[in-house]
Amino acid sequence: MARHIPNLLTASRLILAALLAVALWQYRPGWALLWWGTAVLTDVLDGWLARRLGVCSTRGALFDAVTDFVLLWSAFAVWVWRGAYPAWFLLLLALLFGQFLLSARRGWLVYDPVGKYYGAALYAALGALLLLPDYLLSYALLAGLTGLAAVSLASRLFMYNQ
């Protein structure tokens, strides 16, 4: 039973994604922060537990990335729907995730200096905007996230062409 706990924690983020999207849509910052914080906690714990229990697997790591993507993408989709972020940002996130899946599936070694931290950056941006809902901060975060995405995509494309 214990060996399934990491995957259950990962799966719980799918439920948290729905709860977070509803809280964002209704603008309930307290609830949104709670679901966001729980999601961050499960993201830290599932990997740590998998290593402790010796049940690390490629499939588990992929599932972890998929649930992160679903949660973050749906959260930003709410803000896109509200007009706070441009729709192309969702496409950019989808493109990044597609690139990640492709390179993970083919097992290619790619040098990506920021891809590893991109999920953490998105979580941080989400939390920052929940705490400080200000236009300028949202513009700054959009610029920063787009810049990081460009570096990540460019580095992966460059490595594919080697």
């Binding site: 953490a120 941080a124 920052a128 705490l131 400080l132 200000d134 901060l137």
Partner: peptide, 21 residues
């Protein structure tokens, strides 16, 4: 330590930004 640097930088920046709020 890279992650720590990012978190510390982000924390200080948000702290300054949040002050009037």
């Amino acid at each position: 330590f890279i992650l720590a640097t990012i978190l510390v930088s982000f924390g200080f920046s948000l702290g300054v930004l949040a002050w009037p709020y």
